[in-house]
Amino acid sequence: MPDKEKKQGTNISRRNFLKGVGTGTVAATVAPSVLIGAEKEADAQTGDAVASATIQLNINGKPYQVEVEARTTLLTVLRDGIDTSGTNIDLTGAKLICDRGECGGCTVMVDGKTVYACMMLAMDAEGKQITTVEGLADGDNLHPVQDAFVQHDALMCGFCTPGFVVSSAALLSENTKPTLEEIKVGLSGNTCRCGTYPFIFDAVKTASKKM
């Protein structure tokens, strides 16, 4: 096995830290002492590795062309991305809430399945059908889930709502008549802090009658 060549994330003295007795000056933990030379473009040694690229994305049935870095997430493209024609993509329905795949605020569908857009690289979404909350309604006609959310007041501040709406729509497209337990499982990847869950469950049940 190759030697463990792990960087030391920080060079603070743990022993001192442990005792809670700082002695002398140490570089702060907030500044890593080793910086990986990541700025350089495609590494010669890795052949066709790309550090950035112009990719085609199909979002809500519309084609977009956007330049991304390898590390750019799908969520960043949706929210902050600029099409090569210069227009902002500006699909801000999906939110960044936890940035770690723990909350569902960034839920979108990729090829009909829900994913966390904060945990997906934009390059991985190339060639796939991406549906965001903005793409669910048919013009002015709300998706049954959206309509039911409004009628049941399944939202308060509304910040989590786009994620819940997308998850609910995906759930109903797989299972048109879910039980309460199945609704809970289907929406278990989404979090609401205002506490709208009871009315969300009601809304999904109502919407399921129209599916």
Partner: peptide, 24 residues
């Protein structure tokens, strides 16, 4: 941090790339 991205085409390519680099 920035990184570059390779779409793997074969297992051999992957193991070669890994062999030629340091851990991590």
């Amino acid at each position: 941090e920035k990184f570059s991205y390779v779409n793997a085409t074969s297992v051999e390519q992957v193991t070669t790339l890994l062999s030629d680099s340091r851990w991590g």
